[in-house]
C-alpha cells in the first residue's frame, strides 16, 4: 500500500492557491519593492511610485558597492557577529557540559541561574550597560565592547538549548572512554564535542543572526567608522532621505547576507527555534 503524503485532506483547490498567492504577494511585496526601487531613479519613483524600472539603472547599486563606508559597516557587522557567535558557542557548550553530564549538589540551582538569565531583556539593562562599557571598561566604539555583552545575553538561551542535547548522548560513551584512560576533559573535547556539532551549529546560527540584526546596543555604543550595517542603513536613510532610490539600493544590499545565510541554513534555524519553543 502506498501512502500518500496528503494528510488526508490533500491537494490544493484554486481557492487555496489564490490565498497562497495573496500571502506571498504581501510577504515579498515590500522586499521586492525595495529591490526594484533600487533599479529606478528618484524621478521615476516620484512620477509613478508603483511602476517598474524603465529604464533599469544600475547607478544606485554600483554607488553602494563602491561606497567605502558600506564595506566598512559590513566588516564591522561581520567581525562583531563572528566574535559574538564564537564566544557564545564556546562558553555556552562549556557551561552546558557539567550541567548535563556531571552529578553534583546544586546542579539544578546552577542551571536555574541560566534560566533566570532568560528573563532579563537587554532593554532593562541597556543604560547601565552603556555606562559600564563606555566609562568603566573604556570599550565604547570597539568590536569587543558590543560582542561581549551580546554574547552574555545570548548565553542563557544557548545553555538552555544545549543542555538537553548533551544529556541525550548515552552515558556509556564517557564510561567506555574512561576505561581507556581518558580524562573527563579529554572525553568532552574528543568525543562529546564532535557529537554535538549539530546543536552547536543551531545555537551558533541563532547567535550570529541575532548579532547581525542587532540595533539597540550598537546604537548606543558605536559611532562613525565603527558602525554596523543596521546603523549604517538607518543613518543613511535619514541623512539622504531625499535619495529614495539610493536608500532602497543600500537597504536591499544590506539584506542579502542575512537572506543568504537563512537560505543556506534554513533547516537549522527553524529546528533551533522549534527546539527553543518546545524546551
Amino acid at each position: 500500500m502506498t501512502r500518500s503524503r496528503t494528510k488526508g485532506y490533500g491537494g490544493g483547490n484554486p481557492l487555496v492557491y489564490l490565498i497562497a498567492l495573496i500571502v506571498v504577494a504581501l510577504t515579498v511585496g515590500p522586499v521586492l519593492y525595495g529591490a526594484l526601487g533600487g533599479f529606478r531613479t528618484n524621478a521615476q519613483l516620484a512620477a509613478d511610485p508603483t511602476g517598474l524600472p524603465d529604464p533599469w539603472v544600475l547607478d544606485n547599486y554600483t554607488g553602494v558597492l563602491t561606497n567605502e563606508a558600506f564595506w566598512r559597516y559590513a566588516l564591522n557587522s561581520t567581525v562583531i557577529a563572528v566574535i559574538t557567535t564564537g564566544v557564545t558557542v564556546i562558553f555556552g557548550v562549556m557551561a552546558a557540559y557539567p550541567l548535563a553530564r556531571y552529578e553534583f549538589r546544586g546542579r539544578e540551582a546552577l542551571f536555574m541561574v541560566f534560566v533566570l538569565g532568560l528573563l532579563f531583556p537587554a532593554a532593562v539593562a541597556i543604560i547601565p550597560l552603556f555606562i559600564l562599557i563606555t566609562r568603566d571598561l573604556s570599550m565604547a566604539n570597539t568590536w569587543w565592547g558590543v560582542a561581549l555583552p551580546q554574547a552574555a545575553f545570548a548565553l542563557p538561551m544557548t545553555v538552555v538549548i544545549l543542555r538537553p542535547f548533551l544529556m541525550a548522548l548515552p552515558k556509556e560513551i564517557e564510561e567506555a572512554a574512561m576505561i581507556d584512560g581518558s580524562s573527563r576533559i579529554g572525553v568532552f573535547w574528543r568525543i562529546l564535542l564532535p557529537l554535538c556539532v549539530p546543536g552547536l551549529i543551531t545555537v551558533g546560527v541563532l547567535a550570529f543572526i541575532g548579532s547581525w540584526n542587532a540595533y539597540l546596543l550598537p546604537l548606543l555604543l558605536l559611532q562613525g567608522e565603527m558602525r554596523t550595517l543596521p546603523l549604517g542603513v538607518a543613518d543613511y536613510s535619514t541623512e539622504y532621505s531625499a535619495d529614495t532610490a539610493g536608500v532602497l539600493a543600500f537597504t536591499t544590499i544590506a539584506m542579502i547576507p542575512a537572506l543568504v545565510l537563512f537560505l543556506a541554513l534554513q533547516k537549522r534555524i527553524v529546528s533551533g527555534l522549534q527546539g527553543a519553543v518546545k524546551g
Binding site: S4, R5, T6, K7, Y9, G10, G11, G12, V16, Y17, A20, V23, V24, T27, V28, P30, V31, I209, W212, N213, A214, Y215, L229, P230, L231, V233, A234, S237, V247, T251, A254, M255, A258, L259, F262, L263, Q266, I269, V270
Partner: peptide, 26 residues
C-alpha cells in the same frame, strides 16, 4: 496540505522574520 510549491511557500513566508527589524523598518 499537499500542494504544489509548498516548500517554497514556507521559505518565502519566513523571509521577513530573518530580516533585521531596522532593515524591514527602513
Amino acid at each position: 496540505r499537499d500542494m504544489w510549491g509548498r516548500g517554497l511557500l514556507r521559505t518565502i513566508i519566513f523571509v521577513p522574520y530573518v530580516l533585521a527589524e531596522v532593515i524591514a523598518g527602513v
